[in-house]
């Protein structure tokens, strides 16, 4: 049974100042799936997403989204969405929550034109989905960590792209909210979207995610969570070992 593959990665290698951050990474992500990327700190998970998005240059290897290279994709805002880690943005910027969420529509609005009432309405709806309606005119630097996270999620949600990358979206969020968000992500998945989530939280994998991707500079394992989250694999991924380029599986 061949599902449609939305994202293909071949031998992706990224080195930064002589340090290997990603080494010969291979993967195929099927369309309409909810994928978790897990691994220890420094495993290259964020770099992986950034390289796919073209933010970080790659040393060699290929990345194909919808069968095309990144720069061949037209109307990117409809196809790909990216929610960065919370710390990568200047939170002291004078913006309200609504301003930030509205940015999810900017791709649609285009250069020079202003957001319309319709855009604002959609943005408020997105805020509502994440329980942030009352905060719409609050300055973002007044928000707690979890609230900032939800604003980011709302923005990504509003953008309504087919392939969504979320980098550590559950940081600073309580378990209940995390459940709510995971349910939302499943809703999106059921609509045919593909969602790739970088996360630390191994416990959330079972029962929520379709696929788990164990990464530590290169792919340790990829498959259904219950199949690949074996103690052996986990030790290999997290256990402080050097990863041989020879993928020994004996």
């Amino acid at each position: 049974m061949s599902e449609k593959i939305v994202l293909t990665i071949d031998d992706l290698t990224v080195a930064y100042q002589n340090t290997a951050v990603l080494w010969k990474v291979n993967a195929e992500i099927p369309t309409g799936s909810l994928v978790a990327v897990v691994g220890p700190n420094g495993a290259g998970k964020s770099t992986l997403i950034k390289t796919i998005m073209g933010i970080v240059p790659k040393n060699f290897g290929t990345v194909r989204i919808f069968g095309k290279e990144l720069n061949q994709i037209k109307k990117r805002h409809e196809k790909i969405s990216y929610m960065p880690q919370r710390g990568s943005v200047d939170w002291s910027f004078p913006l309200t929550c609504l301003d930030v969420v509205l940015m999810g529509r900017y791709g649609h609005i285009g250069w020079l034109r202003r957001p319309s009432e319709e855009d604002r309405k959609l943005a408020m709806e997105a805020l509502d989905k994440f329980g942030m309606t009352d905060f719409y005119d609050r300055q973002i630097d007044e928000l707690s960590g979890g609230q900032k996270q939800r604003v980011f999620l709302a923005r990504s949600y509003l953008q309504d792209a087919d392939l969504i990358f979320l980098d550590e979206p559950f940081g600073g969020i309580d378990a209940r909210t995390e459940e709510v968000i995971l349910d939302l992500l499943k809703e999106l998945r059921d609509q045919g979207k593909t969602i790739v989530v970088v996360t630390h939280d191994l416990s959330s994998l079972q029962g929520h995610f379709d696929y788990a991707w164990l990464l530590n500079i290169h792919t340790i394992a990829f498959g259904r969570p219950d199949e690949i989250l074996t103690p052996d694999n986990l030790a290999h991924c997290y256990g402080g070992t050097i990863h041989s380029y020879q993928e020994g599986s004996s």
Binding site: I55, H77, M103, Y106
Partner: peptide, 22 residues
């Protein structure tokens, strides 16, 4: 006035700006 949203977007989150085509 003309580039207000572009200015705010690219100053606040240049990475996201690039992704959505700015």
């Amino acid at each position: 006035t003309l580039f207000y949203k572009e200015l705010m977007l690219t100053s606040f989150d240049p990475t996201y700006a690039k992704i959505i085509g700015y």
